[in-house]
Amino acid sequence: MFTNKSKILTAILMASIISIYFMYLNLTPYIGIQLEKENNYQVESISEIGWGRHNDIQIGDTIRAINGQTAKEHNTVIEDNRIENATSISIERNNIVHTYQVHYSSDLTTQYIYFHCYMLYLMFF
């Protein structure tokens, strides 16, 4: 049988492991770009706290490449019609192609704070 002390230690250990896992997942920025497949991979929406909002990506832009591959080859586009886990994104706007390097920015600190506060809330309430 577990004593109260061992239950508390187990709960703390599990919470620590889960927190470390979620921090690891958050090492890459949340890009937050949703695409329309039917419309030649155009940007349909952009999350308020995502990388795309802070880097001049606009609704209606056409995605030409993600990490040097076409949009239809990128795993998160295939699975969910969204861009995540990218290191570079090429978009076309007004017949001009722009390429962006995806990197973490201090402007996205709110993403980190919101995410971890929400996870703590889920774990303890």
Rank of each mutant, 00 (worst) to 15 (best):
F2C: 06
N4L: 12
N4D: 09
K5Q: 06
S6R: 04
I8T: 15
L9Y: 09
T10P: 03
A11I: 13
A11S: 15
A11M: 12
I12Y: 12
L13N: 10
A15T: 06
A15C: 13
S16P: 12
I18T: 15
I18Y: 12
S19N: 06
I20T: 13
F22M: 15
M23C: 12
Y24H: 10
L25F: 02
N26V: 05
L27R: 09
L27Y: 07
L27C: 03
T28C: 00
T28P: 00
P29M: 04
Y30K: 02
I31N: 01
G32E: 03
I33A: 03
Q34C: 07
Q34H: 13
E36D: 15
K37N: 10
K37G: 03
E38W: 08
E38S: 13
E38T: 14
N39R: 04
V43H: 04
E44C: 07
S45N: 15
I46R: 02
E48F: 10
I49L: 11
I49F: 08
W51A: 08
G52Q: 07
R53G: 00
H54K: 15
H54L: 14
I57L: 02
I57W: 00
Q58W: 04
D61L: 01
T62C: 05
I63Y: 04
N67E: 01
G68M: 05
G68K: 01
T70V: 10
A71P: 07
E73V: 02
H74W: 05
H74N: 07
H74K: 08
N75F: 01
N75L: 03
V77L: 09
D80I: 05
D80K: 10
N81A: 13
N81W: 05
R82I: 14
I83F: 13
A86F: 05
A86S: 14
A86Y: 09
T87F: 14
I89G: 01
S90T: 15
S90V: 13
S90E: 14
N94I: 08
N95F: 12
I96Y: 12
I96T: 14
V97P: 10
H98Y: 12
H98G: 00
H98C: 02
T99Y: 09
Y100H: 11
Q101V: 07
Q101S: 10
V102P: 03
H103G: 05
S105F: 07
S106G: 06
S106N: 10
S106E: 14
S106A: 06
D107L: 06
L108Y: 03
L108S: 02
L108F: 05
T110C: 05
Q111W: 11
I113V: 15
I113Q: 10
Y114G: 06
Y114D: 08
Y114Q: 13
Y114S: 11
F115C: 06
C117I: 15
Y118Q: 01
M119I: 14
L120Q: 06
F124T: 11
F125Y: 04
F125D: 01
